[in-house]
Every structure is written in C-alpha cells, then in structure tokens.
C-alpha cells in the first residue's frame, strides 16, 4: 500500500542543511498496524505527515496504492488523499464553531456526498460509538477523551483505507488511551483498516503488528519481537 524510497527531508539552516529524515525506505502492506517510535525530535511526525501527503519530502519517491504520489498534480493528490486517508491528532483539532455532528460531517462535505447519505453515515457512526446524545454539543463542551473520539470518528467517517494517528492518546489518561487503542485494534481486525500510529508508549505500540524505530531521522533496523 505504502512504498517510501530514499526519502530525505531537510531544512536549510544557515548555509548548511539540517536533516530531519535521511534515506527512509519503508513498505507498509494493506491491513497492517504499524507503530512509529523514537525519541522526541527524531522525525516521527514529519514522516507521518509525508505518508499522509500533508508534507513533501526534499527528495525521494512515494507510491501509494500503486500510484506515484509526487508525479501527480496537487489537485489529484488531494483527491487521492481525501478518499483513502484519515488523520487523528494528539490535540484533537476539532473546529470550535461546529457541533460534534458538523465536525464529523466535514470530510463528507468535501467528498460531495449527498445530504441524505451524509446524514445516514453520520448517524450510523454516532450510534456505533454511542455518542448520539452529544451530537449537538460544541467541542468546548466535551472532555478530552470525548473530543479525541470525535476526532477519530471524523477520520473514519469517509471509510478510509488508511488511518494515520500522531500520538492519539498523548493528551488522554490511561483508561481513555486504552479505549482508543482497543478501538484501533478492532478497526484493524474487523474493518481491515490499515493503521500507522506515532507513539511514545511501548504499551500502545504493542497493539500493533509492527514497530518502526526512528533515531535522528533514520530507521533503526534492530531485530525485535512483537508481543500481541
């Protein structure tokens, strides 16, 4: 599904370059549940954003679903991205002026889903995650866990094949975090959604099937075992 080859990312600093990512080669098959780990500043978020097409590398090539991402026009890239990828952030990032219902609906608006269908899809999700009662509240009226739940539902609403999550449990307590991880696992197993998450927690990483370790912008190839 994802094939990254020789990905470099640098920022100019004075006359020289600061490398954030160096020669990243990474393949992720459909249906995988990958955790990216590494110390702060090692380039995890940068890598995730590149996978999510929110950011461009300085060098390298990227094939997503057998299509060469950097050879297409920006417009097509957004099309490809909005059809297949859902994003979850550490700090939720909901639109303050929209209700829970409207926040969840937003991606569908940009995919030109018909109004009736939109309604059915959103209601279905609200039902599934048991927050029907909260649908008319604004983000400020929700707890952090609830906000993150809404953020995840928003990422899921368009039925993406790939979920990218940047420290999704970073702002949550452990119970809430566990719930979210269970949810991810379920999505991965039952709905066959590919998941790539950035995390600092070994425990959370354990939910996945594979761990990618980053250090100073390079993938560490340490043989490791994964507990399930």
């Amino acid at each position: 599904m994802i094939e990254l080859q020789h990905i470099f990312k640098w920022y100019p600093a004075g006359g020289s370059r600061v490398y954030v990512l160096q020669d990243i080669n990474l393949n992720i098959e459909a249906g995988a549940f990958v955790s990216i780990m590494g110390p702060s500043g090692s380039g995890k978020s940068t890598l995730l954003n590149i996978i999510g097409m929110l950011d461009l590398p300085s060098e390298g090539s990227y094939r997503f679903l057998e299509q060469s991402v950097y050879d297409m026009k920006e417009k097509h890239r957004v099309e490809l991205y909005k059809k297949h990828i859902g994003f979850v952030f550490q700090s939720y990032h909901l639109i303050d002026e929209l209700t829970v219902y409207e926040n969840i609906e937003t991606p569908l608006l940009y995919q030109n889903v018909k109004s009736a269908e939109r309604k059915a899809m959103v209601s279905d999700m609200l039902d599934r995650f048991n927050i029907v009662g909260k649908k008319d509240l604004f983000p400020a009226q929700l707890s952090g866990g609830q906000q993150q739940l809404v953020g995840i539902i928003r990422a899921l609403i368009a039925r993406p094949k790939l979920i990218l999550a940047d420290e999704p449990t970073g702002n949550l307590n452990s119970a809430q975090g566990e719930e979210i991880m269970n949810l991810f696992q379920k999505l991965n197993e039952e709905d066959k959604v590919t998941i790539v998450q950035v995390t600092h927690s070994e425990k959370n990483a354990a939910y996945g099937s594979r761990i990618v370790n980053l250090l100073d912008g390079r993938i560490q190839h340490i043989p490791q075992t994964v507990h399930s």
Binding site: L54, K75, H93, L94, R154
Partner: peptide, 19 residues
C-alpha cells in the same frame, strides 16, 4: 490566528484550496 486552525483541519479533512 483562530481561523488558521480551522483552515488546517478543513484541509486535512480533504478540502482543496479553492474550496
């Protein structure tokens, strides 16, 4: 400053610049 976040979220949700 406050609208920028909204723009970011909308773009992440699949909005084209034109939209």
């Amino acid at each position: 400053l406050s609208r920028g976040k909204e723009v970011g979220i909308r773009k992440v949700s699949g909005a084209q610049r034109f939209q």
